[in-house]
Design a protein around this nucleic acid. Structure first.
Lengths: 117, 117
DNA sequence: CTTTCATATGAACAACTGTTCATGTGTTTA
DNA sequence: TAAACACATGAACAGTTGTTCATATGAAAG
């Protein structure tokens, strides 16, 4: 059904259009998915997640380990927490952060595979 | 080795610090990884990739299918191509785009699993 | 060669992002 | 209660991003 689209000659057929429209998740889901990847799209946050791969940690440890300010880390942990990638546990004055689940590791590893070609 | 870090009491030990420093990829790799996820972090680009899951398509088809301007799609295809997520094939006036490899699908599916909980 | 069509690209703009700095909140200890 | 500590948060700032508009490139047809 090229006429419905732009090209004159050899463009996609109606059954492909239908297939896309069937398989394409709804806008809200796609938006959420993009938001999730956006969270992974910052090297500070990636570093925090890599640190938490090894053990749960408090904010100041992460800051010290990554050589960044406590405030910067705290802001980023907030983002990670909203995305449900990390969870927090309070122990007195200290707050320990850890990975929410194994999805985080899987997603990062999958991405890393593409990066290292 | 809490003294090396910030907290007074129960913070991470030196062997964990060592573990993180051993497993943490170098800055350039982490930067590349973040750049990769940044590319997935836009719903327009996600939609384009979903469309290409079904078949290779030319720019105007994608634009028509997603109800966006040809220019916007072209700009985004450039980003996707730089990240080696899609490849282009010229046929006369038309340029057909398709997925570079199966990593794309795997990364998106992995992200989707987290989104749909 | 000129026109037409599909695509690419540059400039401009508003919207968004990540850090810093200052300060607020909540918990423990003196 | 006051001080000290770990963490959270708001404002402000520079840097980045995605779209639009106008225009350029490159290929095919007349």
């Amino acid at each position: 059904m090229c006429a419905d689209l732009c090209c004159e000659e050899k463009c996609i057929h109606q059954d492909i259009v239908n297939k896309v429209e069937t398989h394409l998740p709804n806008d809200e889901t796609l938006y959420d998915l993009a938001e999730l990847f956006k969270v992974f799209g910052d090297s500070t946050r990636i570093k925090i997640l890599y640190a938490l791969f090894e053990a749960e940690m408090c904010v100041c440890d992460i800051a010290e380990l990554l050589n960044l300010t406590q405030s910067a880390i705290s802001h980023q942990l907030r983002v990670l927490k909203s995305a449900k990638l990390v969870k927090a546990r309070r122990a007195g004055k200290t707050v320990f952060y850890s990975l929410s689940d194994e999805h985080v590791r899987l997603i990062i590893n999958q991405g890393m595979e593409h990066v290292i070609e």
